[in-house]
Lab assay of single mutants.
Amino acid sequence: KELVLVLYDYQEKSPREVTVKKGDILTLLNSTNKDWWKVEVDDRQGFIPAAYLKKL
Rank of each mutant, 00 (worst) to 15 (best):
D42T: 09
D9I: 01
K34E: 14
D24G: 06
R44S: 05
L53K: 00
R44C: 05
F47R: 03
F47T: 04
P15V: 09
L7I: 08
L3D: 04
I48P: 00
G46V: 15
V20H: 02
G46F: 11
A50C: 08
I48M: 13
N30R: 07
L7W: 02
K22E: 08
V39L: 04
K55M: 09
E17N: 06
N33C: 09
R44G: 06
K21P: 01
R16W: 15
N30I: 07
K22A: 13
W37R: 00
S14R: 10
K21D: 03
K38H: 10
T27G: 08
T27L: 15
D24F: 07
K1S: 12
V4D: 00
I48A: 14
E12Y: 06
L26Q: 02
V4R: 01
D42Y: 14
Q45C: 09
L7F: 02
V6G: 00
V6W: 00
D24Y: 08
L3S: 07
V18I: 13
A50P: 08
L53H: 00
D43W: 10
W37G: 01
L28T: 01
K21Q: 10
L29M: 07
E12T: 09
I48N: 01
D24A: 12
G23F: 04
Y52S: 07
Q45E: 13
A51R: 15
E2Y: 11
Y8N: 11
N30E: 15
V18R: 02
K13C: 08
Q45W: 09
Q11R: 12
R44N: 06
K13W: 05
A51I: 13
G23K: 02
E12N: 07
E12S: 14
R16T: 14
I48D: 01
Q11G: 08
K21W: 11
L7N: 02
R44L: 07
T19L: 02
K38L: 15
E12M: 15
D24C: 07
N30Q: 13
Y8C: 09
G23P: 00
R44I: 08
Q11E: 15
L3E: 07
V20I: 05
W37I: 02
K54T: 12
E2C: 10
N33E: 10
V41R: 11
Q45P: 06
V4K: 00
L5I: 13
T19A: 04
K55Y: 08
E12G: 14
K13E: 09
V20K: 00
K13P: 04
K34W: 08
T27F: 11
D24N: 09
K55G: 04
A50S: 13
G23I: 00
E40D: 06
D43L: 11
T27K: 11
D24V: 08
K22G: 07
D35H: 15
E12P: 10
Q11I: 14
E17V: 03
K55V: 12
F47E: 05
E17S: 06
Y8L: 10
V6K: 00
L29D: 01
D42M: 12
W37A: 03
T19D: 03
Q11L: 15
K13I: 07
K13A: 11
F47A: 03
W37Y: 05
K22Q: 11
L53S: 04
Q45N: 10
P15C: 08
K22P: 02
A51N: 12
E2W: 11
V20Q: 01
P49E: 03
L53R: 00
L53Y: 01
Q11H: 14
K55A: 07
G23M: 03
R44V: 08
K1G: 10
L29C: 07
S14F: 07
V41N: 12
E2D: 12
T27H: 15
P49V: 02
K55I: 12
E40W: 08
K21I: 08
R44K: 14
Y10Q: 01
L7K: 06
L56A: 05
E40P: 00
R16E: 14
I25T: 06
V41C: 08
W37Q: 01
S31C: 09
L53W: 01
V20P: 00
D24T: 13
I48F: 02
G23C: 06
K54Y: 13
A51S: 15
W37F: 05
D42F: 12
L56P: 02
L56Y: 10
D43C: 10
D42N: 15
E40T: 08
N30W: 08
A51P: 12
A50M: 06
T32S: 12
V39I: 10
K21F: 11
K1Y: 15
V39G: 00
E40C: 09
K21E: 06
R16D: 12
Q11N: 14
D35W: 15
T19Q: 04
Q45V: 14
A50V: 08
Q45D: 09
D24L: 08
E17A: 05
D35K: 15
L7D: 01
L7A: 03
T27V: 15
K34C: 09
V41F: 10
